[in-house]
Every structure is written in C-alpha cells, then in structure tokens.
Design a protein around this nucleic acid. Sequence first.
DNA 1: CTGAAAGCGCTTACAG
DNA 2: CTGAAAGCGCTTACAG
Lengths: 342, 342
Amino acid sequence: MSITIEDVAKAAGVSRQTVSRVINGKPGVKPAVREKIETAIAELGYVPNLAARRMGGARSFLIMAINDRERTIENWAAGHGNDWVDQMLYGGMLACEARGYHMLFELIDTETGKAVEQVRRVLTSLQPDGIILTQPHSENPELAALLRERGRPFARIALPDANSDALCVHFDDAGAARAAVDHLTGLGHRKIAFLAGDRSYEASLVRREGYGDAMKDAGLEPLIAEGGYSFDKAGAIARDWLENGGPTAVIAENDEMAFALLHVASKLGVEVPEQLSLISFEDTPGARFAVPPLTAIRQPTAAMIARACELLMDAAEGQPANGDHCLPFDLIVRETTGPAPR
Amino acid sequence: MSITIEDVAKAAGVSRQTVSRVINGKPGVKPAVREKIETAIAELGYVPNLAARRMGGARSFLIMAINDRERTIENWAAGHGNDWVDQMLYGGMLACEARGYHMLFELIDTETGKAVEQVRRVLTSLQPDGIILTQPHSENPELAALLRERGRPFARIALPDANSDALCVHFDDAGAARAAVDHLTGLGHRKIAFLAGDRSYEASLVRREGYGDAMKDAGLEPLIAEGGYSFDKAGAIARDWLENGGPTAVIAENDEMAFALLHVASKLGVEVPEQLSLISFEDTPGARFAVPPLTAIRQPTAAMIARACELLMDAAEGQPANGDHCLPFDLIVRETTGPAPR
DNA sequence: CTGAAAGCGCTTACAG
DNA sequence: CTGAAAGCGCTTACAG
C-alpha cells in the first residue's frame, strides 16, 4: 500500500541495493545514477519504513529518554506542569528530528529491580539506538551495567562518575553555586546561607562544595542547612533564620524551598529583597510567577538533552562518543536579590 | 543477540507460530501447550521485537499524537512550560502503556501543505496504528482526508464536525460556559461579560453560544468582547470596562486574558473578587500562582487523550470506533469569584 | 489444535 | 560502481 524501495528501484531502473545506498548517503554510486534515484524518490514521495530498516539490520532511528516514573506522574497528576519534561522534549525532539531520528520517552520505576526489568523490556521491544538516563536513573550503576552489557550507547545526565567512563552530560553545578555567591557578595551580602536539598544527590554535594569554596574565597563563613527539597522543612528553617537574625541572603537548591522562604518572609513582614535576598537553583516556570519573581540559576536542560542526543546519534553512526560534557548555566537576575541591608 | 521467538519455540518444543498465538492471545492452543510456552517466555525473559511484529504484518503498537509545531516550540522556548503537552502525555502515555502500546508525539506545521507532507512522512516511516489530531490540526479537513485515504484510524480532539463522521473526543464547552454563568449568577452577579478568543476556533463559537443561552435563561443581557486570546487586547478591554462601570464579573476564554484582567484591576485599584469576579476557561499551572488564584474551568485534557488512545487501540484490534465522545469538565472555585458588589 | 511456507521492506556482506 | 542472495523476527493465510 505504501511506496517501497522496490518501487523506487523500478522507477529508476536500478536494483534496490543501489537505492539503499543513496538513501543512506553511502559512497560508490555514479552521480548520474544517484540523481536518477533521487528524482524517483522525490516524484514518488518515497519515505523508508523504519521498522523494515531496523529489521534489515540498520539503526532504529530511535533515541529513548528514561525518566523517573513516580516523580513525573506525580507532577502531572498535580497539574503542576513539568518543566523538566518540557525542556527535555524541547531539546531532544528537535535535535533528533534534525537528523531523521525520533525521540521516545519512557517512564521507569525508581526501584532498581523493576527499573532493570523495565529497561530490558523496552530495549528489546523498541531497540533504540541510544538511551538517555536522567535523574535518578542516571546514578544507578545497575542500569549502566545493563546498557553496557547490551552494547547500547547511553548517556547519563549526571555528574561524572569516578568509577565509570560512561558518556555523561551535565552542567557546572559548582560554578553555578559560586556564581550565586559572587552575585550576592557583589551586592554587599556577608551572611549568605545555602539551603540544601538531599545528600543522596551527587549534584547537591557538588553545589555545597562550590558554595563552600566561594564563601571561603570571599573570607566568609559558610552556613548550610538541610531543607530536603521540601516546602515545609524549608519553611521551618526560614522561620528560625528570620526570627533570629540569620542570613541576609539565601541560596535555595530548588524553587519549592525558595517559595517557602518567600512565604515565611511575607508572613513575618520581612521584605524581599530589601531585607532578604534569595536565589533559587531551579527556575521552573513558577519562578517567574512568584511575588516577587525569583532570581535563579537556570539549568540548561534542553541543551543537555540535545547534546546527549547528538552524541548518541554520532555513536549510532559509528563515531563512539565518550567523556563528560559540561554545559554553561545562566544566572537570571530578577527581583529577589538586592543590596544587603545595613 | 536478543532472545527471539525461535528461542522460545525451541525451549517449549513447539513451532514459532504456536508461540506467536500465545503472545497475541489467540485461541486455539491446548492449555498444556500454552502453559509450557508461557513458562518458557518467563524463563527466557522473552519480549517481542516490535519492528519485527510490524514487518510480519501486525500492528506497530504505536499511537501518534500530532501537535502544533509553532505554538508548542514557542511555549517551550519561552520556558513557559506547556500544560497541554504535559496533560496530553499524562493521559496518553499511561493509557498506551497499559495495553502494551507506545505513545509517539510529533510536531507538525500549521500550514496545510506542509502539514499534509509531514504527516504523510511519519505515517509511512513509523506506521502508527492510530493518530490523534489536536488543535488546530484536528480542524484541518485535508489531514482528515489523508488519514481516511490511508485507512488509518484517527481521532480528532475537537468538536464534532457536521460534515464528517470521524471519531472525535471533546468536552462540553457549551456546558462549561453555562456552568460559569450559573456559578456567577448564584453569587448574585447580573452584569456578566464573556471575554472571547478567536472566532476561527469552533470551540470559541460554541462557548459563546453556551454563555449566551445561559444568560438568556437567567433573564440577563449578554455582553461579549473579542479579546483574541491576547494579553494586550484583553487588557485594553478590561480598562474600558473597569473605568466605565462595566460588568461585575467576567468569563475569560484563556488564562492569558484572565491575567490581563487581574493586572489591570490591580493597577486601577479594583479589588478581586470584592469588586470584580473572574473565571478563566483554561486553568494552566499559572492559574494557581495568580494573585489571587483563578477560579477556572478545567478541561479534561488527560482524560480526552486517554480516551482517544483507548478508542484507537480498540480500532487497531478490530473494533472500529466512531462517533463523538464528550467528557466532563470541572469548575474549580478558587479565589477570584465572590458575591456581587451591591 | 499445530506446523511448513511465504513474505513484510529493508540492509548487509559478497560477487562481479 | 552495481546487483543477486540471504536474512532480520515476526505474522498471516493455508494445510493437515
């Protein structure tokens, strides 16, 4: 029912292998023949069937991103939107499309046993040419082992792992923490706290370190509190700080905690940014709707996924990619940072 | 390299057709044999290769949702998040997954010529079992014609089209408009305006009608203004109303226009909801962040896409689906509606 | 109830 | 530079 390679071959008066060569941009076809084939393709509107290509032994032209099932669904169900997924699709779909690939997107359970089983299934049912592991799957060594064993190229969206040379794409967490500190010291702040997330996240550790180093370099005393990425925990910490002459500036590891700070400050009549400056490390769409709008580090999510796709497509085409790729972040200054109060 | 149907057949001591029957849940396999095969499948961890299934002449197990390229990318690029895409994936991915299908998501240009060409391409490259057409593609007759000509089941997320019996899934726009009016009259409002979007959208027309009928039934005078879904246009209209003793309540067709109203009201010192009540017809995540949070009609996006997927999977499995399917909406009362001022 | 045959639309070696 | 052959992992009729 559809036009096949055979139809093109017939129309161009050649064999189907020759058509295949042209489709795949392979050398060794006389220019005149190539042109005849290209004309036939255009006239017939021929488009190769990907399933058949795959069966023939070629690539699947599929890049699969693996996301955390629970967290993703939770966000969707709450109607919160999901900035991560949006930016991932933005970066990934366009990168794939540009080279004739398609991006697939799977929800995988966090629990290792289930995760391995589920990834195994999609690996064989869909046969993706490359896999992108996002948090927290990107830090799961068993998943990496499975992929390596299957010989499937994969990219971790995560900080480099000393025990592994797997391809990884990330951004400069430490540098971003330092940039946040520098922005604040530039405004005259000296009591700058870091409202941290969870120690089980590698990135959180690195950010703390970047923060600590920057503070030390500025001759300031670091102050780190554990907010666990939670609104309530962060709120309690904020209340303690604001009621007891704590920091004049806070760097929060995610928007949720930044919102808590804003909330408590408003309740306590502490003005932002006049009396308290605030930087978030996340910048979801809500950051812009906050009152006042949050100054924030913007992670290059779309760019990281796009890069991962590029590297995986390169690998699928025979140029194995590896190493770690660090992408630049942005510090977006909005309205929650201002000169330190005297 | 992967386990194939042949391996299972060998392990169970049967032919591969018999295994195929079991995989596909077809009748005519002796219970004992079926069990033996199922055991082998479990032990070997066999998972069918979808590309091969497709090539063998079966389904592709792919459902493809077609979205507006420009609008989607625009939202992503602005870092706005994209509630529609999120809810679409939420409803669609889970529905597909539950029956062993996968949801694919394509960005297609609005311009008809390009759209037809692009859809034609993905149709033959990916061979989806079903296609979901979302706005504005769902109102493009050429796309519907192409799909019909190809014999591919498709569902329009749109209001029923009198000229077509194509499967369509939508929600009760007119009923939602009426519910908004009723909520407002229940609060004592009598001057209730409808801030409409664009006449080129079928849904907008239907909502106007629902609004008009409800007003008439309540013995009230309808007042419709054309806001074109635009912040600026809506702002100008709002200013005119608020400065000249206009309506005490407004129903806006999208959040953008509702935000404009809020913005102008705040500028003019008009208190919401004390002096002005407001209902939006969209309820993106931003609606909750608005000050005050918006009372809104919530469209059942996830449910509509899930339903479309169900119907298309039914069709792929031989139970052709048709007709129009109307899903219920929610009126979420937050803080922008209150008793009419006296 | 079960199996042998043919074929889906491609690609990969292998000849020439 | 080009083509004939074999095969990828399945499924669909068709026999028995």
